[in-house]
Design a protein around this nucleic acid. Sequence first.
DNA 1: GATGAATGAGCATTCATTCAT
DNA 2: CATGAATGAATGCTCATTCAT
Lengths: 217, 217, 217, 217
Amino acid sequence: MSANVSTTKLKKGDRSQRAIKAAARKVFEADGFTKARVQDIAAEAGFSNGAFYRYFSDKTSVMMALLKDLVEGTLAFAREPLGSGHPTNSIYLTTHSYLEFYAENRDLFALLVEASHTHPDVETMWNELRTEAVEHVTHMLDTARDSGHMRAEVDPQTAAELLTAMTDQYAYLRFVLDRMPEQSVEAVSRQVTEIWSGGVFMSPAAPRIAAAQQTVT
Amino acid sequence: MSANVSTTKLKKGDRSQRAIKAAARKVFEADGFTKARVQDIAAEAGFSNGAFYRYFSDKTSVMMALLKDLVEGTLAFAREPLGSGHPTNSIYLTTHSYLEFYAENRDLFALLVEASHTHPDVETMWNELRTEAVEHVTHMLDTARDSGHMRAEVDPQTAAELLTAMTDQYAYLRFVLDRMPEQSVEAVSRQVTEIWSGGVFMSPAAPRIAAAQQTVT
Amino acid sequence: MSANVSTTKLKKGDRSQRAIKAAARKVFEADGFTKARVQDIAAEAGFSNGAFYRYFSDKTSVMMALLKDLVEGTLAFAREPLGSGHPTNSIYLTTHSYLEFYAENRDLFALLVEASHTHPDVETMWNELRTEAVEHVTHMLDTARDSGHMRAEVDPQTAAELLTAMTDQYAYLRFVLDRMPEQSVEAVSRQVTEIWSGGVFMSPAAPRIAAAQQTVT
Amino acid sequence: MSANVSTTKLKKGDRSQRAIKAAARKVFEADGFTKARVQDIAAEAGFSNGAFYRYFSDKTSVMMALLKDLVEGTLAFAREPLGSGHPTNSIYLTTHSYLEFYAENRDLFALLVEASHTHPDVETMWNELRTEAVEHVTHMLDTARDSGHMRAEVDPQTAAELLTAMTDQYAYLRFVLDRMPEQSVEAVSRQVTEIWSGGVFMSPAAPRIAAAQQTVT
DNA sequence: GATGAATGAGCATTCATTCAT
DNA sequence: CATGAATGAATGCTCATTCAT
């Protein structure tokens, strides 16, 4: 009867570590990594100053722990199958779920980006993430090319870089900086897919999108 | 009346201020804004640390001065006419010269991005810049739509945001983080133009690019 | 009634206390008193840090316990009879066994000396030890004087101080700092005896030493 | 008229550095190196906390500066000529002036000894000092041996070590710990010389000392 | 104008010690 | 008895900023 899902089966120490991690996440979100103070993190978790150091060696190390989680999550995401059929299908689905994932972890992505300026290993970590994503997309484009779906003028590698950059930056501006007009993730994903598939100008490739969308719902 | 040896007709004070600004730029590039120390900036300019405060009230304020220059430069750039004829022409030209501008000012863009995490006004500044660029593109897309060159499925506003984000992020990854394969700015601009114009998948819009390119050389 | 596996007839508590003392001795030897951490002592003894405080109130108090043992040992030593016959006999024997005692307890002597800088009571303790030794020697010198063996120019008290200081400092440099050439304790004791008995310069008192040495073996 | 010997011809910075060094010396003497706090040193010198760090990188570094002075002083001392004539002459003179030097620098010797426990480089420094002294004495003993003044039973090297240790330790106990009966430096030097020259026991070498003493006055 | 000495708030970090379990 | 989580005082150190010279 007394079992509590989140509290049970964890030793006190584990619970505290989690509490501190969670507190750090909150504080980083509110103040940014640079301005966050160890003391505030401990306090947010309901601990004294010194308790922090039982679980993490410094501010950087909590951050790393948080980001490791994010990386794992992202990689798990990146390794999911792409969805079959015409590439636009994959694009729509991938974009859509990536944006949702990003939105859910907006604070951690913010942290990743901020810390990458001052911590070379974070920058590396970010780059690995990006690389993984780009490879994922490149692979998709290669497949598309092999099945004759791709335009010859497009270099798959560069296109993958560019299109990944587009989605990433959109997500950052939208969910971290909140500088993008509010719009449903579906709508944006559709626009992204449009651009990927047919570009901006004449000679449409549109009809396929409607189909892709149905698979989501 | 005696002719001044160094840069024409600047009082000593102005010259010193410039020297400090230039030094700050160097130091920020080397160490990042957060880690840069006022002392190092002054020293780099050949001054004692106290002298710094005659010309700037603050570490933040030199940064602002530098970024103000960047903003002006970018706006000047953004207000240049787009090049006439078919939109792909404009895209190619704009992308190409934006990337070159970015490359030349990579250190200031790095500064802009880093400081945006800690200084809300910088974030605002950055957003204004972005907004200007997006409007510029939106305007171009509107024109394209009016002259029947644009696909109906594409929302000009969102497309402008997405495509601006793409170029911006590419530039950041390429010139600031140095995480992109080396490739001529021309080649990338061409790929960007391809994607804008025809997307990634079948139903080509290629021939127009060759023409656009000639205008540059 | 059940026979206890480990050291005879000691309650668990006593055994633990001894274990901690032994651990402290090890840790103090390795790190010095100042740098030694309670946690490390407890860990070395196989306990959690909290357990330490069941047996000792303090880091200082384990140290005191260790030093009290040393003092007792030294006093026991100092109270042993001096060996009879000519004083050189006593000197050789005393020096020899003191050096051996010092060597065996080098770590505790190191502790004694180090802690004397920060803990006045340790300094006092050390002084009591020294005083005891000096009195011991003074007593021997008095006897020598009474039996006409001592040079009139020598003040027994000062000589006792000086000669004790000599042996003590030699022992410290040799066994604690390891800054003396390796040499058998016998050889050094002989030299010490030489200096005591005949000084450094002409008019020998040598033959007596050979005899004294035989008594040791 | 306004020139002040101790203040003139020093830039403010130099003066401050000296002030801090002097303050450190005071504080170390009062509290010992271990317990001394940077803040107290700065305060003693009439400065704020941070000023300390303009002149020294840490507590250890002021200590090193102080000890370097001591070492230089001691070496200067050790390199002075020994006084000619019979070795007892040299011994008396050297002992006498060493004890006076030690007395004047008792605080620095205390520092040297204390810090040698925690700072290996200080221990090394101390050892170099000691080695220098021992070599000095060894050299004197070698000379004495060559001119037939030395007893054959005595090994010059070991004797030098032992006798240096004696004087050193006496000085430490007397001037640092204040644990020796007050006695004029002359009287102690005489006793030391007695022991060196004729040992403690019969077969005197005394008359020479009276002569040596006259050279001092 | 320049200098560089001095300030002092601000933050990280350590570790002896306590105490609930 | 033993654990190990938590406390919090103590201190070191940095660096933007001020100001007397």
